[in-house]
Amino acid sequence: MKSKVVPTIKLYDYLLVPIQIELDDNTVERLQMQILHEIHENDVRGIIIDVSMVDVIDSYISFVLSETAGMAKAMGCHTVLCGIQPQVALTLAQMGIRLKDIITARSLEDAIDILDELD
């Protein structure tokens, strides 16, 4: 596999993806491929994407995130998003964007709790 866009952490059966870089269109598409490969290679049952460092999530980024979740779902894997900044949440809601196939969690701990219960 090519170089990783985001260094990930394997935690229990989950893949933790802390996004700490500016997400441009190209990065987010490469991240999608990276996540799918890691699910396949590492026997992952759940993905936790942490976006607490992301200042702007626009329609395309949220679309790719939802799309990734849909693909992960097809591979038997749930996707939880945590750490959305309040102003980003407001912006997404005002634009009318729904994060299809994604569960949102209040924190990393909450995300793990949610995935545990889903199993």
Partner: peptide
Amino acid sequence: IEMFNAIKLLGS
């Protein structure tokens, strides 16, 4: 509705 959806995005 927008406010509620935003709160849901925070996971609450």
